[in-house]
Design a protein around this nucleic acid. Sequence first.
DNA 1: TAAATTTGTCTATTGATATAGACAACTATA
DNA 2: TATAGTTGTCTATATCAATAGACAAATTTA
Lengths: 249, 249
Amino acid sequence: MIGHQAADSIERRSGVSLWRQIADKILQSIAVGDFAENAALPPEVALAERYGVNRHTVRSAISALVQEGVLRAEQGRGTFVLSRKRLSYPIGARTRFSTGLQGQTSERHIVLLASTVEPASRRVAEGLGLAKGADVIRLETRGEADGRAVSRAAGWFDAKRFAGIDAAMAQTGSITASLARFGIDDYLRQSTVLSARHADAADLADLDLQPGAIVLVTVAVNVTPDGQPIQFSESRFPAERVELKLSAL
Amino acid sequence: MIGHQAADSIERRSGVSLWRQIADKILQSIAVGDFAENAALPPEVALAERYGVNRHTVRSAISALVQEGVLRAEQGRGTFVLSRKRLSYPIGARTRFSTGLQGQTSERHIVLLASTVEPASRRVAEGLGLAKGADVIRLETRGEADGRAVSRAAGWFDAKRFAGIDAAMAQTGSITASLARFGIDDYLRQSTVLSARHADAADLADLDLQPGAIVLVTVAVNVTPDGQPIQFSESRFPAERVELKLSAL
DNA sequence: TAAATTTGTCTATTGATATAGACAACTATA
DNA sequence: TATAGTTGTCTATATCAATAGACAAATTTA
């Protein structure tokens, strides 16, 4: 697991097609820096030998990545790496979307997609310390960096205490700024539970992913400095574009 | 993304077979608690309708999970959930394998698989603040809980400073105890970078996984309280058996 | 016991996946 | 301008994945 990958590290009869596995490996190689940006990939025949598969199988993987906008193929010249490395998304005591991504991207922002009032499900109620079924405001947001989707999050707030936070969010485009209007000057991340799974149809649409992608999922609770829960959230990140950097631990 | 899954959240032509996607969904449902332990799954025909696929496709998914030891099928009776929920693996400032898993499992331990002295690669050298190529000791370990593999880690230590840590590890079975012999009474996790990918052949063997599985990967540096790096590590976790709980943030 | 329910097995068909080989089209270079 | 190297396209074949239908085998329920 030290950078290189054995020629035999491809699994057949796995339910995951070979071209998908090879596309994953190429993405990984780009993220790790084995394949440099703007440089040419090894020729198809070389990749085919390296992974122990037919050239056409490699072509399937490449065409999927061309479709994704990661590679560009030019007849007679070669296949070139377009995409940058994974975005390193910081998670720590004071996780906010805007801070910490400085320097990695030229443009980043959050879009508020929808806001609804709904009864709290069991886990939302537990996270916020409310009774099950109590009214909560749900904000659906999408994080973008350089025009690519890097996160999709749902955040729940006590509807009584934070009435109007949806409007504030629409105005400011920032959770932090919106909470400030309710007298929350500082907040901390109390807990984060992290898991990973294959993208389903909703993930594909929400994060502009290609079928077969992997998503990282975090479920977190934010609290005031004195421990009062204010926000429960579930966030999804495209694993091929984002890694999570756990800081301030 | 709130517990339920739409009937159409299955992707065709994705490079990931339908049976694998459905197996993932069933695992997810078990982890979330939709399918209770020891209880019967819905009958095959019901699952087929729910996911919009043929009964035989559901059967392929089930047989894969039976192979994995997650389900048990009994002719005439039904298919039953054997496995417990995902193990919640804590990661925080004072992450150690032994602490924090209390109560979740009855038995857990680390096995030292191999120890070698090798020249530091670029990233290991950077993590430990050594010159590239300097001698480092590498410990390969495997974490088990209730007889199931829950982690596989490689840890690197400065060979000069920690000469003999391999023997200490073999004796004590604990990194913490081994470091104590070198005067390290306390250490902190400085940074953790987290990503996810499909399991390759090495992961399948190391973690007893079935093809198509997802692994979580963390790359971390541990330091003394005054900031001196002592350990660089890369750990792999089976996403179907483990979730990471980021605590003390 | 009989009927209903559920998993197991078999055959057949279609489409996606993977391999194999040949050659065309394009680019860079000797 | 040749030649070598590279991607693009085509045909053919074999295997895997998915659907469809029928019926057997085992268990539970009426």
